[in-house]
């Protein structure tokens, strides 16, 4: 039977439902939601929960695309529902389909079990390991060193990349793009003292060499980050680990020193 269409005043929100206590397998349920300007997908889910079915279960928290709780699969793409307008996701028939993040066990409705996601995250030691003697005032990083890791710093750990990765789906031992991006952040941070250990941990066939360069992590990231490029960088560094480690030791000797200001050039410098 042809599913019903939405209208100018109502959208049809199709949601994958699964209650482990009563359902043998997941099914899709449709809800008619008012089309109000400015409504996000999260607003639509809240409306359904408050007005139609209180048992609808989903994760959300900050509503500002910073907590990473509300990543879901919408029309086949992993996105944050809190920052995505409902109107942008409706097809010509006024419908949108929301499913839980793929390749992860479903706990209930749109909530997935992220245990493996966090397990792999902890595996790469995501914390900074600074030198034992810290500078009296501050670490001095050059603008280039900050720019190199800026991309990775803005990850919100939403899991969109992890659950979009087919390598994760096929091999649960794979560390995953989220954790490798974090490892990249720590490896390239001049303050970190264990880059060699980190590279040894991720430079394995469960780490950077397991990536099949499918690029889904880039396509899925709601913050437009580039885990694939981070993985490519780690691959190169893992192959010259000893030299990189030696360069880090050398760099940390001057990490409290002022950053040299580049000499002015051309006519500007002659003034």
């Amino acid at each position: 039977m042809e599913p019903p269409n939405g209208s100018n005043t109502e959208a049809i929100v199709r949601i994958q439902r699964f209650n482990p206590d009563t359902d043998a397998k997941a099914h899709v349920q449709e809800f008619h939601v008012p089309r109000v300007q400015g409504t996000t997908l999260l607003d639509a889910l809240h409306w359904i929960k408050h007005e139609r079915d209180g048992s609808l279960t989903f994760r959300r928290s900050c509503r500002h695309a910073i907590c990473g709780s509300c990543a879901m699969n919408v029309n086949g793409r992993n996105i944050l529902v809190c920052k995505t307008p409902l109107e942008d996701q409706l097809d010509r028939k006024g419908r949108v389909t929301i499913r839980p993040l793929p390749y992860l066990p479903i706990i209930k409705d749109l909530v997935v079990d992220r245990s493996t996601f966090w397990k792999e995250y902890v595996r790469v030691k995501p914390w900074l390991v600074p030198p034992q003697t810290t500078p009296a005032k501050e670490f001095r990083l050059s603008p280039e060193e900050v720019a190199a890791v800026h991309n990775a710093e803005t990850c919100i750990m939403c899991g969109a990349c992890y659950s979009a990765c087919q390598v994760v789906a096929l091999n649960k031992a794979y560390i995953g793009p989220h954790a490798l991006l974090k490892s990249f952040l720590r490896v390239l941070d001049p303050r970190d003292t264990i880059p060699g250990e980190r590279l040894a941990d991720v430079g394995t066939d469960e780490g950077v060499f397991r990536c099949h360069t499918i690029f889904n992590c880039i396509d899925a990231c709601p913050k437009s980050l580039n885990p694939t490029q981070a993985i490519e960088t780690l691959r190169k560094l893992a192959q010259k680990r000893a030299a990189f480690e030696a360069a880090r030791v050398e760099r940390q000797r001057t990490i409290a020193d002022p950053i040299p200001v580049p000499a002015q050039s051309g006519s500007e410098g002659e003034r």
Partner: peptide
């Protein structure tokens, strides 16, 4: 199933 050009290339490669 997460569809993308990357996934198509991965399947074709395999």
């Amino acid at each position: 199933m997460y569809r993308s050009t990357g996934f198509v290339s991965f399947v074709l490669r395999r």
